[in-house]
Amino acid sequence: MEKRKLNISFNKSGSGSYTPRISLPATWVKEMGLDKENREVEVIFENSQIIIKKEK
């Protein structure tokens, strides 16, 4: 298991609301088999944790 501390960016929209975003390390995305053509993931929020899985 590899662990990293990442920051969340908050982008402000024209209406004044904020959208949180996080960038994942490219090595992790590549290891999951994700690319421009295969980019669908399943995101689960459970017990204050976010889990990202590749769609099957």
Score class of each variant (00 low, 15 high):
I8L: 07
R21D: 03
R39P: 09
E55L: 14
S13V: 03
I8T: 12
S15F: 02
R39K: 15
E42Y: 07
G16F: 05
T19R: 02
M32S: 08
L34H: 08
V41Q: 02
S23I: 09
A26E: 11
F45K: 11
T27H: 11
N38K: 14
S17A: 12
I50N: 01
T19I: 09
V29A: 11
L24A: 04
K30W: 00
V43W: 02
P20V: 09
I8R: 03
K5A: 04
F10N: 08
N11S: 12
R21Y: 07
P25K: 10
P20S: 05
I51W: 01
R4E: 09
F45S: 10
S13Q: 13
P25N: 06
N7F: 02
E46I: 02
N38P: 06
L6W: 01
G16N: 03
N7K: 15
E55F: 11
R39A: 13
N7Y: 06
K56M: 06
A26G: 08
E2I: 14
S23P: 01
E55P: 04
S23A: 14
K30A: 11
M1Y: 10
K30G: 03
G14M: 00
N11L: 07
E37D: 08
K36P: 02
V43S: 05
E2G: 14
N47V: 01
K3C: 03
S23Q: 10
S17V: 13
L34P: 11
R21T: 15
L24W: 02
M1I: 13
V41T: 12
I52M: 07
K54V: 15
M32H: 06
E42F: 07
I50L: 14
I8A: 04
E42S: 13
K56C: 02
P20L: 08
V43T: 13
M32E: 01
K54M: 06
T27F: 07
E2Q: 12
K54T: 15
S15T: 12
V29W: 04
I50C: 07
N11F: 06
I22F: 00
E37N: 11
R39I: 04
T19M: 01
L6D: 02
G16W: 02
V29T: 14
K53P: 06
E55K: 15
E2W: 05
G14N: 06
W28G: 12
E40L: 11
N38V: 05
K56T: 10
S15L: 02
K12D: 00
G33C: 04
Q49L: 09
L24H: 06
V41M: 07
E2P: 13
S13D: 03
K54I: 12
K54S: 12
R21P: 00
P25S: 08
